[in-house]
């Protein structure tokens, strides 16, 4: 018991290092680049997952149990359109970023 109490609760400590290094795992708001955005016709989607596999930013999740089965992280989607181009069902359309469906 005694020994356990002596153990520090966390082994992490901050050290000052000299020279160049990156240690903050962060993400730029690349969603702001978008000129067009993918618009998914959920009724056409067969949930094959090809859009997610092909997305360079890895921002697409295909959720088979949900009605809105394709989720996109809008903070990071650059609007490249690969998902729309590769969708075998043509269920994704690229629409101007500021347009309303």
């Amino acid at each position: 018991m005694q020994r356990q109490q002596e153990k520090p609760t966390s082994k992490l400590r901050r050290f000052r290092l000299y020279g160049p290094c990156s240690h903050v795992f962060d993400a730029s708001h690349t969603g702001s680049w978008r000129v067009e955005r993918p618009d998914v016709a959920f009724d056409k989607c067969v949930k094959c997952g090809i859009c997610a596999t092909c997305c360079p930013a890895n921002v697409i999740t295909v959720d088979k149990g949900s009605a809105e089965c394709v989720r996109i992280m809008w903070d990071y989607c650059k609007g490249c359109g690969i998902c729309a181009n590769e969708c075998p069902q043509k269920a994704i359309a690229m629409i101007p970023e500021r347009s309303v469906k």
Binding site: L17, Y18, G19, P20, C21, S22, H23
Partner: peptide, 24 residues
């Protein structure tokens, strides 16, 4: 100082801005 260790990872020697190089 800077050390490569997969158990304690950092990325070393990346691009650094003019805001910090003078200090380094």
């Amino acid at each position: 100082n800077l050390r490569l260790d997969p158990k304690d990872p950092i990325l070393i020697n990346n691009l650094t801005s003019p805001d910090e190089i003078t200090e380094m």
